[in-house]
Design a protein around this nucleic acid. Structure first.
Lengths: 144, 144
DNA sequence: TGACGATCGTCAGGCTCTCTGACGAAAATG
DNA sequence: CATTTTCGTCAGAGAGCCTGACGATCGTCA
């Protein structure tokens, strides 16, 4: 519903471009069974594992949906669920070796793309962009 | 697949926030039968109507998906299809009165949100943000 | 003018994603 | 302990999106 680009829509293009680049690279690296929905949940998994409920909240989907996607990731060997030592009800979703390999590829592409963007915008402008977006996150991201 | 926020992910938060605000406002205004997928297609409709194929390309979905969503929008009275006077094969998807009312609400919310963001970031930083994002679009948006 | 490939849009079928609702198990509360 | 909250799952349904195939129309070139 927009003809003239507003700030929100302008934000959308880089995000979509990065996501596209990451999934293209993953497919090229042989990880061609990953879907975008799975990736958005997997992207929230922390170093020491993350609870399903937390993944659902951060990805803004229901627990059921997050559980469904984690099931798929688990079946494909990217993550596993381990009991949470601090809470008998909960389990922590952790990356497997294969999952960490995916993360490594994604990180590499992120760095590549950022380098390209920096080359296009210039160092100073990129720094300002990152700073503005980081501050904007304070009022647009309910999670941290 | 990211722990430390990269530029692409940082772009995602404002976009998601704006989209959420717009749909909340639309629902509050009585337009509660619109879905996000419909909105993403409708957002690409130009002043004088736009072809289905073009909507599909810009929203990055298949023609079939775009046609399915336009069917829904048409049934709900938001758009209509008129013959393209310059091409007998094509039809132009145009907003109806009801559709234009939705656009008006969306525009108002966009302005509100941008004002809030400007208040948070400051005039100068916002201007720099918009300029950087606009230039970034040159390398991240295949469409214009 | 007529034949050919390209483009516009649709139909059919199936898979993925996401939701609402309800539920047992374990933890926190008091 | 009894109650309430939180964690995760099961079941069912619907929306979204895709691939493949198709008829109709356009543009081009012989």
């Amino acid at each position: 519903m927009a003809a003239e680009p507003n700030l929100g829509l302008l934000c959308f293009y880089p995000y979509r471009a990065l996501e596209g680049r990451i999934f293209a690279a993953l497919a090229a690296a042989g990880f061609d069974d990953l879907t975008v929905a799975q990736g958005r949940v997997a992207a929230r998994i922390g170093e020491h594992g993350t609870r399903l409920t937390e993944l659902a909240e951060q990805a803004q989907v229901t627990k059921q949906t997050a559980g469904f996607l984690v099931d798929q990731l688990e079946r494909a060997g990217y993550v596993r669920r381990v009991p949470d030592p601090t809470d008998g009800r909960a389990r922590l979703v952790c990356f497997t070796e294969r999952g960490l390999a995916v993360v490594a590829v994604a990180r590499r592409v992120e760095a590549e793309v950022e380098a390209e963007w920096t080359a296009h915008l210039g160092e100073e402008s990129t720094r300002a962009l990152r700073e503005a977006l980081t501050r904007l996150r304070e009022v647009t991201d309910p999670w941290r």
